[in-house]
Amino acid sequence: MPEKEFSIYLSGVGGQGLVLLSNIIGSACAAAGIRAITGEQHGLSQRSGSINVHLRIGPEVISPLIPVGGADAILSLDSLEALRYVEYLRPGGVVLMNDRIQHPTIETAAHTKDKVAKYMSVEDVKERLTKVTDKIAVIDAMKLAAEAGTSLTENVVMLGALSTLEAFPVPEDALKRSIEENVPKKAVEVNLKAFDLGKKAAHDLLCNIVKCR
């Protein structure tokens, strides 16, 4: 099977399980014989700050960092963090973002002075992103994660949605096996449920705008 290249920019807020998400995908690639590399963030940047992981799949990718304008997709666990890295998205690339925003403390502090200011909303972000792509899916991962059994599975809900993309070259069964191997034993079931709920949501929210499997 000739491998296709796929670069995905994962973003979120420290504590949302982004590194676990990239590990699940990477391990699935290792098991499926697909080449994958990542550029990750650990350390100081994790403390409730903005975080990102560059994930690249393909036989020839060498740089762990995606070039500006080179990401086929942005997957974000917080809408603001999708916008924050918009320069990485290639024109017409896919944005999969969580219908959720943890308001930055700096923005909150500004709100105590300006009595009419509104937080930047998911709709605001979507509106801005439409200037670079028309392929944007907003998924209420928190709700689906809770439905699966725990709000901690937001990351896997988003992975389920990502897995429906035709261009995403990692087979679903490899992803599911990787979930089984990489999450704590007692959490396997809820995570697999979260994956399926994300997949189902994508059929309604993503597959009408992007080619799905």
Partner: peptide, 27 residues
């Protein structure tokens, strides 16, 4: 093939008003 400066400039425009999220003390 990509004018990186132009992409970054356009991104900066789209991000106007997006607040920074530096690391901070945890809850």
């Amino acid at each position: 093939p990509v004018d990186y400066g132009a992409v970054l400039a356009k991104a900066a425009e789209l991000k106007a008003g997006l607040m920074e999220r530096p690391p901070t003390f945890c809850p």
